[in-house]
Design a binder for these strands. Structure first.
Length: 422
RNA sequence: GGAGAGGUGGCUGAGUGGUUGAAAGCGCUCCCCUGCUAAGGGAGUAUGUGGUAAUCCUGCAUCGAGGGUUCGAAUCCCUCCCUCUCCGCCA
């Protein structure tokens, strides 16, 4: 949620900023609703004050055995007025809240103006793209060839956009998870955390998936439950500190968490139908940081470098881009995507998304820190470090040999029973 | 799932309808005293939000959550959530 005080003071700046995303702030509604809120809230609180006074007076009169009927009549009438006013206030606050919850985060100055993915700004390239002397296969062919992937079985068990991994690929899946967790905990200083894979709507609202992106979620089909499968570990991990005041001397707090992620992929028909690039269920190792507001710019660089390090260690060619104003996520102020080279597609594909949300999520979640005896909202950041399925696809394709076998990256060998080939 | 107990401020813990936002203790902060990392004395110490540009001033809300009764609810009623104990079931 953006800062209401800031919205009040700098409405047109805010509107201009959001217009870059293609989001139009409804000025008419805002002015009208905010004006009404102020009026009704003041009136309500005045009535409440009056009510409190009358109630206290009755208490005193009763103690002194005096007549209370006159005051009581007045209090009864006032009580009725108050109730009506309160209802009115609740209504307007509900509307305002809904309005505020659907406003995306302000964009950082670094975010390039753009209309699609094509306008993302490349700021770094790493590793060299391999020249193949033979006809290459895509990761799905390689997976099927080694009998390590089974899409038909997966769709029988569940539906399309699921996969079954077997043998060496099941092992590779596990190896990648362990490798990443080890690097982040041992070398990057993250604390490993294990969390529920099912969350309530409050948690999803906290990180920004709700109320706007309900259709992207896998909801538990039970009217009484209000539960969803997590789309990313970001949701449970960031909400871990919801409604808390963190000790500032413990910042930054950083967590690494491996979870499966579930996405409905509504509206992605026809996109990436082949292979394991876009699935309803995939594994991810997620990095989450809670920081002092003054440090978050630097912390995003640090967090992103940790994700980059995994790609470097795996010797996978990648590039780093700044997401443009139309491609960046709802809650994010600034996002770096890391894109890995996929030879079969002859292009770079997203494998990690590292974002600084500044106080957008912490305001929704009320995560604060004590600073100079005052409570201020902390900043939250997260990034994939990395998406496992896409890493697997990248390894298969980039490390493939002419005979259809795949070499194993050196750093993974200890995790793969020291095998050399898949 | 069944039976019972309970959820109060950073912590412990009073409080069963009327200045209780909340006793007391601990902890913490500041000050005083004291020649010595002790003891004592005093003051302060929740969060959110509104009126405000505002640290001052002041209103309102918050005793697990949401409703209800009442002039008035931490206290009474209802629903839900959570914790603990016993039983059942189970990885």
């Amino acid at each position: 949620m953006i800062d209401i005080q800031n919205l009040k003071k700098h409405f047109s700046d805010t509107r201009e900023n959001l217009i870059k995303r293609g989001f139009e702030l409804d000025e008419k509604f805002w002015l009208k609703a905010e004006k009404k809120r102020k009026k009704v809230q003041v009136e309500t609180e005045q009535l409440q004050e009056e009510q409190n006074k009358l109630a206290r007076e009755i208490g005193k009169l009763q103690k002194d055995k005096k007549d209370i009927s006159k005051v009581k009549a007045q209090a009864s009438k006032n009580s009725g007025d108050l109730k009506l006013k309160k209802n009115e206030l609740d209504q307007i606050q509900l509307e305002l809240n809904r309005f505020l919850l659907t406003i995306p985060n302000l964009l950082n100055k670094k975010v390039p103006l753009g209309s699609s993915e094509a306008d993302n700004k490349v700021i770094k390239k790493n590793g060299s793209i391999r020249n193949f002397s033979f006809e290459i296969k895509d990761h799905q062919e390689l997976g099927l060839l080694s009998d390590g992937m089974d899409f038909e079985a997966a769709s029988k068990i569940a539906k399309s956009r699921f996969v079954v991994f077997k043998d060496s690929l099941a092992l590779l899946n596990r190896a990648l998870i362990n490798f990443m967790l080890d690097i982040h905990t041992r070398e990057h200083g993250y604390k490993e955390i294990y969390v529920p894979l099912i969350v309530n709507s409050e948690s999803l609202t906290g990180t920004g998936q709700l109320p706007k992106f309900e259709e992207d979620q896998f909801k538990i089909d039970d009217e009484e439950q209000d539960l969803y499968l997590i789309p990313t570990a970001e949701v449970p991990v960031t909400n871990y500190h919801r409604n808390e005041i963190l000790e500032s001397n413990k910042l930054p707090i950083s967590y690494v968490c491996h979870t499966p992620c579930f996405r409905s992929e509504a509206g992605s028909y026809g996109l990436d139908t082949k292979g394991i690039i876009r699935q309803h269920q995939f594994e991810k190792v997620e990095l989450v940081r809670f920081t002092d507001p003054e440090d978050s710019d630097e912390q995003l660089e640090i967090l992103t470098s940790h994700a980059e390090n995994i790609l470097s260690l795996l010797k996978l060619p990648f590039r780093k881009v700044i997401l443009c104003s139309k491609d960046i996520g709802f809650s994010s102020n600034l996002t770096y995507d890391l894109e890995v080279w996929l030879p079969s597609q002859n292009k770079y594909r997203e494998i990690s998304s590292c974002s600084n949300f500044r106080d957008f999520q912490s305001r929704r979640m009320k995560i604060r820190i004590k600073k100079n005896k005052k409570n201020v909202l902390c900043h939250t950041l997260n990034g994939s470090g990395l998406a496992i399925g896409r890493t697997m696809a990248a390894i298969l394709e980039n490390y493939q040999n002419e005979d259809g076998t795949v070499s194993i990256p050196d750093v993974l060998k200890p995790y793969m029973n020291n095998k050399k080939l898949l």
